[in-house]
Design a protein around this nucleic acid. Sequence first.
DNA 1: ATCCAGCATGCAATAAAATTGCATCGATGT
DNA 2: ACATCGATGCAATTTTATTGCATGCTGGAT
Lengths: 150, 150
Amino acid sequence: MDRIDRKLLNLLQRDASRTNASMADEVGLSPSSCLRRIRRLRQAGVIDRIVALLNPAKAGRTLRAVVTVELRLHGEPNTRQFLDLAAREEAVAQAHAVTGEVDAVLMLRLRDMEEYDALCHRLFQDRANVARYWTMMVIRTGKDETAIAL
Amino acid sequence: MDRIDRKLLNLLQRDASRTNASMADEVGLSPSSCLRRIRRLRQAGVIDRIVALLNPAKAGRTLRAVVTVELRLHGEPNTRQFLDLAAREEAVAQAHAVTGEVDAVLMLRLRDMEEYDALCHRLFQDRANVARYWTMMVIRTGKDETAIAL
DNA sequence: ATCCAGCATGCAATAAAATTGCATCGATGT
DNA sequence: ACATCGATGCAATTTTATTGCATGCTGGAT
């Protein structure tokens, strides 16, 4: 994992649709060497996968929210159960168990408030193990990056 | 944007490294038609970009945290300034202005506690416009998805 | 109901890109 | 100095993407 590998990873994290040849050119390697490095990074699992990122607006999910959740029953099994429940929801992009004043944090991508309402009913009401929850609707996003700095 | 387009988008959101031919096969189209659809989705901006997702552990950033921030001076210009400041930090994956008890939420990807400490100094101390902040370290992640449900 | 326009489709040909074999180069350790 | 292992570049080959073209389908106008 030298300087060239890092450079390649940075390029791929920005745009993985580029041709191998153009990246090879940019890092100053021949296409074959470049390809072999990228393949090695994939096989080593440094590159987990290649995915398409959609435009949320054009995919109909502009509304974002961060929800912090306090559970009624704490502890590992209960937390896990709640995360599993949340994970099944398609509006839930991320579900984390956390330290601090609350037990879990959810990152949501919603179509509209109606979907939010329905989600709250499913996750937080009824016989769910939720004591309280706080919703923060995202007003503006200053940064939203999948790339991991190396 | 019909059923086949959605199917293609779902495939691409999971794995954009597949060959056009195999996806064409899966959705029941010829390679050329499939390619033209995908190209159309890209040009229309539905597909924003294709990126490589790295394994956080192998990239040396396992520690994650959610930080909620209350600003001293609220309002649009001040919030924007803080988001800009946060966006410049490479450990900050997401920076959002939000409604609710706090003004902003940051999603962090950290190497270690040392980096967290240094980041807090830069973002929250000194002449920064931060009244208080609450850090939730991620214990376990139940879901972490870039795909947007269609 | 018929006709026309516009668009998506499949096939086949072509172009582009990825992949591989092989000889060489360079660094590391003996 | 020498051997070894891995990385490199080049050229050949294979795979994949892309395009031209004829056909077929769909929706609107007459």
